[in-house]
Amino acid sequence: MTRSRKLLLTGGGGMVGRNLAEHAALADWTILSPTRGELDLTDYVATQAYIERHRPDAIIHAAGKVGGIQANIANPVRFLVDNLDVGRNVVMAARHAGVSVLLNLGSSCMYPRGHDAALREEQVLTGELEPTNEGYAIAKIATARLCSYIRREDPAYQYKTLIPCNLYGRYDKFAPQHSHLVPAVIAKVHDAKINGLDAVEIWGDGSARREFMYAGDLADALVRALDSAATLPDMMNVGLGYDYTINEYYAAAANVIGWQGRFVHNLDRPVGMARKLVDTTRQRDWGWQASTSLENGIRKTYHFYLEEQP
Rank of each mutant, 00 (worst) to 15 (best):
N195A: 13
R282K: 13
A221H: 06
L267C: 01
S179A: 15
Q260R: 15
R275E: 03
Y242I: 03
G204Y: 02
N255D: 12
L277K: 04
N247F: 08
Q289H: 14
L218M: 07
A184L: 07
H178W: 12
V185A: 00
A274Y: 04
V189Q: 02
D279M: 06
H190I: 03
G272L: 08
V200G: 01
V189L: 14
G204W: 00
F174A: 02
D172M: 07
P233L: 07
F212Q: 06
Y214W: 15
Q289M: 09
A199P: 03
D205I: 01
R209C: 11
V223F: 02
T280V: 15
A254T: 11
S228N: 15
M213S: 12
V182T: 00
A175L: 12
R262N: 10
G239C: 08
V238H: 11
I194L: 13
M235N: 11
V200Q: 11
A225Y: 10
A225R: 08
L267T: 01
L294C: 01
A274W: 08
Y250W: 06
A251F: 07
L232K: 07
M236Y: 13
E201Q: 02
A230W: 05
R269G: 00
T281D: 09
G241N: 09
A274E: 09
W286P: 13
D191Q: 14
A208Y: 12
G196I: 04
A221S: 10
F263T: 06
F263Y: 15
S207K: 12
G287N: 04
S228C: 13
Y249L: 08
G206N: 06
E295M: 03
L267H: 00
M213V: 08
G206Q: 05
A274K: 15
I194D: 06
L232E: 04
G261W: 02
T292G: 02
A219N: 06
A208P: 04
L222M: 14
D227A: 15
I246K: 02
Y249H: 15
K193T: 04
S291K: 14
E201F: 00
R284I: 04
G287L: 05
L226C: 13
S291A: 15
L277Y: 05
Y244P: 07
D243S: 15
W288D: 12
D234M: 14
V264D: 00
